[in-house]
Structure formats: C-alpha cells, structure tokens
C-alpha cells in the first residue's frame, strides 16, 4: 500500500460509536479498494461514520449532497472564466481521485441517473475517471475511495438505485443504535448527563414503533441530540421535546399531542 499518512489514534478522531463491526469492514473495503454503499434511515450516523473513518484512515473527505439538479459537471468539474482567460476547475469527485481522498455522495438516489453513470468506471476494477471536457484520463490511486449512501423505503421505490449500480458496491446497513448505546451517544454529543440521555433514548425507542403506522419517519438520533441540547440550555423538558421531537415528526396536531402524552408519561409533565 502506497499510503503514507499515518493512521490516527482514536482519541483525536471525531466521535463515532461503533454499533457492530462496521469500522473493520470499512477498513478492509478501503484496503481492498472496494467502493461502499451505506444504507440507513436519516440521522442514524452515516455521515458521522464516514467522517470518522476518513480521519482514522488519514484521508481527506469530499462530501457531496446529491439532489435532482446535480449534473455530471458538478461532480467532475467545469471551465470557468477568470482574468479574461478560461480555466478548468475540478469538481469534488475529480479532486478526490487526484488526491487519493474519500469521496462521499450522500443521498445518491436523489441524483439523476445520467449524473450517476460517471462513477461507473471508477467503481469497477479499472478505477478510472475520464474527463471528456479536457480529454484527461485519471487513474485512481489505491487510497481513493468512493462511498455513497441512501435511505431505503418505499419513498425511494421509483428513484431506487438500479441493480447494476447497486452491485458495484459493498453494502453496509445502518439503523438506530439500541437504547443504551444511543443514550451514550446523546450524552456525549449534547453534553448532558446519562440519565437524561437514557430517558430520551427510551422515548425514541417507543416512538419508533409508530413508523409506517402513524409516522412516516422515525425519531432520529439527531433529533434526540437536538432535544438534549435544548434541555441543557435551560428550555423546559416538555417544550424541548415538542420542538425537537414531536413537531418535526408530524404535522398532524393529534399525532403531535399523542407524542406529547408519550413524553409526559416518560418524563413527567410537571
């Protein structure tokens, strides 16, 4: 391996609480130059995980949030004008290839199909990136890694990745951590005591039972951290939960009220 950057010690890394064996899996994907697909619901730690791994592996991280107007040029690069001259500017994908960095395409199903195909030659054993506009052909160094993520669910049925694209990646599934682990994450991230974090995590595990039946989305770890942060800064518990958990999850007044009742049953309303 031509990698020269030293691996970092874990205490200087951004915090990531491992759930299963995802760290080792990711490391061996990187060692073997395999692209990785992360699946999982919103706010369950995918972005944080990639950030953590990039630091751990000592690679720079380029993150692109995909959307439907994202074009191939947004990824690869375009010509610009400056000082009366035209010059080429690399897009994040090109830069990551040149620098042997990690390129992370978040919510990849949001991108149009024709933008996605540009990564095909990078994800098979050729590992090349042809830049049509400049005529350049880049060979990805071994340190380069492509990571994409998406949130499965029927909302993405039509958009879903084509099997031919999906099968170019090694896949890892993420979900919300169990109560104890989630409590630790919330305590650490929001800087609140473990008792409060535990209550919030328990609450979340109950609210998650409502997914698909009453709620479209689950309460994410991210929302719990928001709630904890508000509470820490002095907002009363039930107000904080309403603003950070109940309201973001539903627009239906009755459902919001029911969620508030669940919170009161857990945390008390007085």
């Amino acid at each position: 391996m031509s990698n020269t950057s030293p691996l970092k010690h874990s205490d200087s890394l951004s915090y990531y609480q491992q759930q299963n064996n995802e760290v080792a899996l990711f490391e061996s994907a990187w060692n073997n130059q395999l692209p990785v697909l992360l699946k999982g619901p919103t706010g369950c730690g995918k972005t944080r995980f990639v950030q953590h791994m990039a630091e751990k592996l000592g690679r720079k991280l380029y993150t692109v949030a995909c959307h439907e107007d994202l074009t191939a040029s947004d990824l690869i690069g375009r010509h610009l004008i400056g000082d009366g001259e035209t010059y080429w500017q690399d897009g994040p994908l090109t830069r990551a290839v040149r620098e042997g960095a990690i390129c992370y395409l978040d919510e990849v199903v949001e991108a149009r199909k024709d933008s996605i195909v540009v990564m095909h030659p990078l994800t098979d054993d050729r590992r090349i990136l042809p830049i049509d506009r400049t005529g350049e052909l880049l060979h990805a160094p071994p340190e380069f890694m492509l990571v994409v993520s998406y949130n499965p669910g029927y909302q993405n049925l039509l958009k879903g990745m084509k099997p031919s694209t999906k099968q170019r990646f090694m896949s890892m599934s993420f979900d919300y951590p169990d109560k104890d682990m989630e409590a630790q994450i919330v305590a650490k991230e929001a800087g609140v005591d473990l008792e409060l974090a535990k209550l919030l995590a328990r609450l979340a595990s109950h609210i998650r039972q409502l997914k698909d039946h009453d709620l479209e989305e689950s309460a994410s770890t991210r929302l719990l951290i928001y709630a904890a942060t508000l509470i820490k800064s002095g907002i009363p518990v039930s107000e904080a939960c309403r603003a950070a958990i109940a309201e973001p999850l539903s627009d239906d007044i009755e459902v919001v009220e029911a969620l508030m009742q669940v919170m009161n049953a857990q945390l008390g309303d007085d």
């Binding site: 039972q209 009755e254 459902v255 009220e257 029911a258």
Partner: peptide, 15 residues
Amino acid sequence: GKRLAVFFRALGGDP
C-alpha cells in the same frame, strides 16, 4: 380516539 390510538401503539400496544 386518534390520540389514544397513537399513545397505545407508542407504549407498546399491539398495532
């Protein structure tokens, strides 16, 4: 009714 139903399921009631 509706609030109670959501409350019921959130507390672990059989959906």
